[in-house]
């Protein structure tokens, strides 16, 4: 065994809410796990299922999709599309035997730095306990 498994997590964040929230967490010297690798997009509606799958394919053990709360979207309804797409994609992952918990959609506003820290920590812990995706897929 040896080294403990450290998951790699790709976190897609919308520019206006979550990315700003993450930024504020940093400004406030709150600690979030280094496992979380941020990728900024303008809106959570920009995040296509293809991007999520590419992240898994490229070695991510978990993917976080984060955007503004419903009603707060900078583009008014971009996140409406995410909240429809991502649950379907989660089910599809489950259909082919990938643990759907590896994909999580959640809302973090610019004002929710503590929530950003909490979400990233708990997701990292969850993925750490699930183990590497490669194990699961190549089983």
């Amino acid at each position: 065994m040896g080294v403990e498994f450290e998951p790699k997590i790709v976190a897609f964040m919308c520019n206006w809410c979550t990315y700003a929230g993450a930024d504020n967490a940093g400004v406030a010297r709150m600690e979030s796990p280094s496992n979380v690798l941020p990728i900024r997009v303008m809106c959570s509606g920009r995040i296509s299922p293809e991007m999520v799958m590419r992240a898994f394919r490229a070695g991510a053990d978990g993917v976080l999709v984060m955007g503004c709360h419903i009603g707060d979207c900078h583009y008014s309804t971009g996140n409406h599309r995410s909240v429809k797409r991502m649950p379907l994609l989660r089910n599809l992952l489950a259909t082919v035997g990938v643990n759907p918990e590896r994909l999580e959609l959640t809302w973090v506003s610019a004002a929710e730095a503590p929530r950003f820290v909490q979400v990233t920590h708990s997701f990292t812990d969850k993925i750490r306990s699930l183990g590497p995706l490669s194990q699961e897929v190549a089983e």
Partner: peptide, 19 residues
Amino acid sequence: LSVTLEQTPLLLGDAHDPA
């Protein structure tokens, strides 16, 4: 998938909390 929640709402869960 192309329209808003007002046009086609989720029938399961609460969009405000995807969990």
